[in-house]
């Protein structure tokens, strides 16, 4: 069965995508890739994708009013818990698709039957090929909601695209909310990329608390570990207390930024960060094959 590994961080900008791209480059076996950071998908920038096709993404259904039927009674404005429905002074009802959560309460309340729920496209899923295997990522229309659902769809398409392969590598979203929960569900292992800073550690604690509800193996990678040895130590103590193995400490290395600017995984370069990332790949595979998580 295919192993699914996601790279997450809690705090943004700790180096998730750099680590994901490096693992994509160096891990053995037949691989597929998914970028679940659907609000800011960057993995494609490092993997050189050749686009194959696009699938429209429909989020939660949204309520719409049929103006010809609407009697402008205004009942719907009162029942909406999300402040999505407004009535202008002339009586016309408008529903804000950004605020609407598709709960259907307005449709239920409307005495004229003027409200229906309809599909609402708020992004696209992109299927591509890379030198290492298929990549699935997404573009969410600016300001759209339901990114957790889009994460779920991206994973689903990526699983199909990677059918028969050994490993699905997922670049995860920041935070701890709905998109993160969608990313964590059903995977075998999570790698938390953090950095020695007060904010990154704070966010790592919250992420670990959220992931504790899932049956998966987790690992920590400390990026730019030498920037603040004190916090690096604190992260290691926290991981020890939680029983999470620290599988690597990447030194601060300007080559990382250079490789991002060139649009290639840093493991294509000979440098300190690249060296440690190769070690991380080796340790990760040892851990995964030794402890295959929920798939066993």
């Amino acid at each position: 069965m295919m192993l699914q590994v996601a790279v997450l961080s809690g705090k943004g900008g700790t180096g998730k995508t750099v680590v994901t791209a490096a693992l994509s480059d160096i891990l053995p076996g037949r691989k597929g890739f998914a970028d679940c950071d659907v609000e800011a998908a960057n993995l494609a920038l490092l993997l050189g994708p050749r686009e194959k096709s696009r699938i429209p993404f429909f989020g939660l259904k949204k309520a719409t009013v049929q103006k010809e039927i609407c009697q402008e009674c205004g009942l719907c404005t009162g029942v909406c818990h999300f402040g999505a429905i407004r009535q202008d002074p002339s009586g016309i009802i408008t529903i804000d698709p950004i605020r609407c959560e598709g709960c259907a309460v307005c449709r239920e309340a409307c005495p004229a039957g003027a409200i229906s729920l309809s599909d609402h496209q708020n992004g696209e899923i992109i299927l591509a090929d890379t030198d290492h295997g298929p990549l699935v990522y997404a573009e969410l229309h600016p300001g759209s909601g339901n990114s957790g659902l889009l994460v779920h769809e991206v994973k689903k398409v990526a699983l199909k695209e990677s059918d028969g392969r050994d490993l699905l590598i997922i670049d995860g979203p920041p935070g701890i909310g709905c998109p993160v929960i969608s990313t964590l569900s059903g995977i075998n292992a999570a790698i938390f990329v953090t950095e020695p800073g007060i904010a990154a550690l704070h966010d790592l604690r919250r992420l670990v608390a959220v992931s504790a509800g899932f049956s998966l193996s987790s690992f920590v990678v400390i990026n730019r570990a030498d920037l603040h040895p004190g916090f690096a130590k604190e992260i290691e103590l926290f991981c020890k207390e939680k029983g999470i193995p620290v599988i690597g400490k990447i030194p601060f290395d300007p080559t990382v930024i250079e490789s991002v600017r060139e649009g290639v995984p840093v493991t294509r370069r000979e440098c300190a960060a690249s060296h440690e990332l190769k070690n991380i790949g080796r340790r990760l595979m040892e851990e995964l094959l030794h402890e295959p998580g929920r798939s066993g």
Binding site: T17, A40, G143, S147, V260, G263
Partner: peptide, 26 residues
């Protein structure tokens, strides 16, 4: 971070916005 509903909720009705970015393709 991001561009979905949490950002919209924060931006809606604001008077001005400053985007902080870094000079990389990301």
């Amino acid at each position: 971070p991001g561009t979905a509903c949490p950002l919209v909720e924060t931006l809606e009705g604001a008077d001005a916005c400053v985007f902080v970015t870094e000079p990389t393709p990301f």
